[in-house]
Structure formats: structure tokens, C-alpha cells
Design a protein around this nucleic acid. Structure first.
Lengths: 200, 200
DNA sequence: GAACATACGGAACGCTCGCCCCGGTTAGCA
DNA sequence: TGCTAACCGGGGCGAGCGTTCCGTATGTTC
């Protein structure tokens, strides 16, 4: 019961399992069989279960770390001087992440994974700030909420993850970025007289 | 072997199965157990298999019809006088569809369902025309391809389908719509001198 | 180097779910 | 109304996967 230091091989195997889980979860999502993770780590299924009580726990262990990194990144941006740039940087980060991280969108809305709830709430909270500040300087349309952003990002990550063409992600990201901006080009001083306007 | 008319009860049960499959696939996607569909239809699992050789075949039967409707709708719009409005109408249609149709995004990119391939190719072809014509009048940004649009729509449908809040869909749809438009308000005749242009 | 605790591997269990089969029933027709 | 063929229901089989258990191997300590 006391937290005696793990035996050397146990420690090594635990790391191998985590490494294999990171790779396979990122590649195929939580659907990957646990036996495959064990095989990739060079251990038996039993060994995985001695370190993690359940498959979900392993997924949580891998994903919580990833979410936490994302939260840290967002938190730093939430206090930045330029909220518009901060918001853009967050989108950039997520776009990079989406390259081959199929587990991230699953982590956003995994049901029944109570272990992930704190990290998700943290992310939600910091996203709320990030969005609000970007809205205050007119960089993001006013009606958007953090939940909308999360849904949008999740959809983007999933859609991009399934597409064989990696350049799809770039164009999707551009669409999201521009779509999130307020409709009229109201940035700074400019006096266009675009007819047929839809905004007042 | 000859296509003798089905017995009355067989015909009725087949319709019931299709109806139940439509509802349950739309609500929960292809993950719904076949026994549930059978139970909802008031028949045994064996009856389902007498009408459809496999679960995938049942899914294809339900989804092909849905995709075909969508293709018909898009085909009519692809020849419309106002390509910009036609494109918008297609987005509207898909937004409505997303209300509670969890099977549609799965139909877009279901792997190994060869029965759906023709419908998917039809959809892709007509979307290509729809996008190109909208681009010709400056209603859609030039770099977008039909595959990008499909990925975006799939993401939107999935994100909206999983969210408990139905109003999320509205805001997501607006973001997509505006994001798909060309960045600068370059509608028709106007002589802007936008520096740092990305198009010739 | 020996003894002990700890960890390992993989066979085995139970559960879910797609799919098949057989005894009973019902529809259609003479 | 009665016969026959088609159809129905649900129990059952097998595969895949998460999880557990136990005999064996290995690191650690004296």
C-alpha cells in the first residue's frame, strides 16, 4: 500500500505501455484493442492491467496529459496583450495537433470518463476567457460561445483525421478561422460602402 | 428466384424493419444493435436477415435513399441561375438535415460499404459542380474543393449531432457559411488595391 | 549467492453482437 | 374449408474484446 518505488522492470514496462498507448490511441482512437497496445509495448495484456485498472483509465492517463498541455497553452494566451493574436495562436496549435491525433476529439466529449472531467472543465473555462477577450476586440463574432468553439474544433479534428489528404486540414482551418470572425470587415478605420450589406 | 410478389405479412414486416432502422440509425448511428431494430419493428432478428443479408446492407438501404434525395436536391441547384443562392440553399438543406440525422455523416465516409459508393460518387460529382459555379461568381473561396466541403459538412453534422444544445448547430452553420466565402468583399465590380494578395 | 517478494505472460472467462437454423404459424389459393 | 409453401420468432453459435487468474520468471535484499 505504501508507495514503495516500483521495480525496475515494472517502471520500464509502464513507460512502454504509455508510449504504445500514446501512439495507437493517436492513430486509431480509443477503438484500438488493448491487446494491440500490449503487443506493441512488448508485454502481455495482464501487465497493462497491473498498471492501469481499466482500458479507460489508460486512455485517460494518456489524454489527460495531452489536454493539460493544451490548457496550459491556452491559459498563457488567455492573459496575452493581444487577444486576437492569442486566439489565432490557439487555433494554430489545434491545427497542428490535428495532424495525427485522433484521440483528442474523443477526449473532448468522451462520455462516462469521469477522470477526464476536470481537464475538460479547465479547458472549457480557459476557452471561455479566450473567446470573450477576442470578442471584446472584435476578432470573434459575438454570438459564439466556448461550447460552439469546442464543437467546431472537434468536428474539424475528426473530419481532418479521417481524410487521407493532409492538405484538407489547412483549408478547413482557414474556413473556420474566417468564419469565426465578425461578418463585416469592421477591423479598424475603413470606409467601404459595400452595397447589399447584411449587417447594420 | 423469380420476383414473385411478397406475401402480405412479409411486405409489411419489411416496411416495419426499414422504418425502425431509419429511426434508430438516425438517432444513434450504425452502432445500434440489430436486435434493437428488430425489437422496435416488432419482429425477430431472423426476420431482419431474411430481408437484408447483413446489417450493413440494411444500413445501406436506409442511407442510400437519404443520399439520393440529397443528390437530387443538389443536382437541381447545380444548374440554377444563381449559383451563390444555390450553394446557400444546399447548406440550408444540410443544416436542417443535421437536426437529428446521425447516420448521414457516417454515410459520407463509411469504409467498406461498397453499396454506398455509387451514391457517394454522385454526391461528390454534383458537389464539385455546385462549388465550382459558386466560385465562378465569387461566392466561395477559390481554393475550396468538394472534398473539403464534404469534410466540413461531415464535421458540422457530427458536432451538432453530439451536442445536446440544438442552437449550437445554428452558430456552427453561420461560421461555416461565412468562412466559405472569399476573404475580401470582392463581390462584383470594385477596384480595391488589396496589398499582399494571395490570388493573382 | 540464496531467499523472498514482486511483476510478467498468456491462457481462459464472460459479455456483446452479428448471424444462422429449426419448429411452429400464417397467408394465399383451390 | 383445407392444403401447401412461404414466413416468423427466438434460441444458439462463433468471433472479438475487455478483464482476470495463476504458474513462472526476475529484480531486490541480506
Amino acid at each position: 500500500m505504501a508507495d514503495r518505488p516500483l521495480r525496475a522492470d515494472a517502471r520500464r514496462n509502464r513507460e512502454r505501455v504509455l508510449e504504445a498507448a500514446r501512439e495507437l490511441f493517436a492513430a486509431s482512437g480509443i477503438a484500438v484493442p488493448l491487446d494491440e497496445i500490449a503487443a506493441r509495448a512488448g508485454v502481455g495484456p495482464g501487465t497493462v492491467y497491473r498498471h492501469f485498472p481499466t482500458k479507460e483509465a489508460l486512455f485517460e492517463a494518456v489524454t489527460t496529459a495531452r489536454l493539460h498541455d493544451l490548457v496550459e497553452f491556452a491559459r498563457a494566451r488567455a492573459a496575452a496583450d493581444d487577444p486576437a493574436a492569442a486566439f489565432d495562436e490557439f487555433l494554430d496549435r489545434l491545427t497542428e495537433e490535428a495532424a495525427a491525433k485522433r484521440d483528442l476529439p474523443e477526449a473532448f466529449t468522451a462520455v462516462g470518463m469521469d477522470g477526464l472531467a476536470p481537464a475538460r472543465e479547465e479547458l472549457f473555462a480557459v476557452l471561455t476567457v479566450l473567446v470573450r477577450r477576442a470578442q471584446e476586440v472584435g476578432a470573434v463574432r459575438a454570438e459564439i460561445r466556448a461550447s460552439d468553439l469546442l464543437a467546431l474544433l472537434k468536428g474539424m479534428l475528426q473530419a481532418a483525421g479521417e481524410s487521407p489528404d493532409p492538405t484538407v486540414l489547412d483549408r478547413i482551418a482557414v474556413v473556420l478561422r474566417d468564419g469565426l470572425r465578425p461578418p463585416a470587415p469592421q477591423r479598424i478605420n475603413l470606409s467601404t460602402d459595400t452595397p447589399g450589406g447584411r449587417a447594420p
